[in-house]
Simulated scan of single mutants.
Amino acid sequence: MSDISALLGQIPSIVHGFGTKEALLPVSLQPYRETLPEKKQVHGLRIVDVVAPRQACGEADGFYTETPGILLTVFTADCLPVIFSRRDGKAVAAVHAGWRGLRHGILEQMAARINQQGSTQDWVAAIGPAAGACCYQVSQELVDEFQQGLELPAELISPSPRHLDLPAIAHAKLLQAGFAAVDFAGSCTICTPDPRVTQSTLHPESALHRETKGHKYTSFRRNSLKRLQDPSLPGIKGRNQQSGIIILPD
């Protein structure tokens, strides 16, 4: 099962979902796969207006549409997927926000796009599964960069030494940008166990089995650490979660 947002679930004219390892593209969104825009995510700040199915978007990390029947998605592993809807369901958006995009303003760029034709006060946003403060250890230099560059409480940015809380930073930024409401869907992509599998069902001698079956989400960081121990483990290319949203076609 994919993760869903309680906020977005209240809007009847849209369908949304956050991918998991079980369903990289949420099952509810799979019927609309053929409408997906073509894109290359680059941890940048570019927002694209999507007006046609399969539109070529080039390098972009944010997508906005008012056109029914076009599925907007972003690929993530430990980065933040954030999806948006106007409260009347007449416009939707999706953003890929890794630490670079979050630090340098991808959410503010989406807010600026929304404010061109309306107001963020008429929109809600949902933050999907991503690396949590429990596991996202970084350099002290990066923590310092965030704390010095953002007007947010230092303890919100880094609740424990050398850890960043990306979902909390995104939540605070979205509220600062004027969104009517923001919620969280999903949990930490690095440590959240697969609820379908208990540790007793795993084969202790099989690191690969633990990687593919033991966690709810695909995680670039968890996979990289395992590959340091066992270089034979495959990478995650082709196994990133997709999180997305669509205005239902008429």
Results as ranks from 00 to 15, higher is better:
residue 2 S to L: 12
residue 4 I to R: 12
residue 6 A to K: 15
residue 7 L to A: 06
residue 8 L to C: 12
residue 10 Q to M: 08
residue 12 P to G: 12
residue 13 S to C: 05
residue 14 I to F: 03
residue 17 G to W: 00
residue 17 G to Q: 01
residue 20 T to V: 14
residue 21 K to Y: 04
residue 24 L to Y: 07
residue 25 L to C: 13
residue 29 L to S: 09
residue 29 L to P: 00
residue 30 Q to F: 02
residue 35 T to G: 10
residue 39 K to E: 02
residue 41 Q to W: 02
residue 42 V to H: 05
residue 44 G to R: 02
residue 45 L to C: 09
residue 46 R to S: 09
residue 47 I to R: 07
residue 47 I to N: 02
residue 49 D to L: 11
residue 53 P to W: 00
residue 55 Q to I: 05
residue 59 E to L: 00
residue 61 D to L: 03
residue 61 D to H: 04
residue 63 F to H: 05
residue 65 T to L: 00
residue 66 E to K: 14
residue 71 L to I: 14
residue 74 V to I: 15
residue 74 V to T: 14
residue 76 T to D: 08
residue 80 L to Y: 04
residue 85 S to I: 09
residue 85 S to M: 02
residue 85 S to P: 06
residue 91 A to R: 02
residue 95 V to E: 07
residue 96 H to V: 01
residue 98 G to C: 07
residue 100 R to S: 12
residue 101 G to A: 10
residue 103 R to K: 14
residue 103 R to W: 06
residue 104 H to S: 11
residue 105 G to N: 05
residue 108 E to N: 11
residue 112 A to M: 10
residue 122 D to K: 01
residue 123 W to H: 14
residue 125 A to K: 09
residue 126 A to P: 08
residue 129 P to L: 08
residue 133 A to F: 12
residue 139 S to K: 04
residue 140 Q to R: 13
residue 141 E to S: 15
residue 144 D to Q: 15
residue 147 Q to H: 05
residue 149 G to H: 11
residue 150 L to C: 11
residue 150 L to M: 14
residue 158 S to W: 01
residue 159 P to S: 11
residue 162 R to E: 09
residue 162 R to T: 06
residue 169 I to W: 00
residue 172 A to I: 05
residue 174 L to Q: 01
residue 174 L to F: 03
residue 176 Q to G: 06
residue 177 A to Q: 12
residue 179 F to M: 04
residue 180 A to C: 09
residue 181 A to P: 04
residue 184 F to V: 04
residue 189 T to Y: 01
residue 190 I to D: 00
residue 194 D to N: 15
residue 195 P to K: 09
residue 204 P to T: 15
residue 204 P to Y: 12
residue 206 S to F: 05
residue 208 L to S: 12
residue 215 H to Q: 10
residue 217 Y to V: 13
residue 218 T to K: 04
residue 219 S to E: 05
residue 224 S to T: 14
residue 229 Q to P: 01
residue 234 P to M: 12
residue 239 R to V: 07
residue 243 S to R: 06
residue 247 I to V: 10
residue 247 I to T: 04
residue 247 I to S: 07
residue 248 L to K: 15
residue 249 P to N: 15
residue 250 D to S: 13
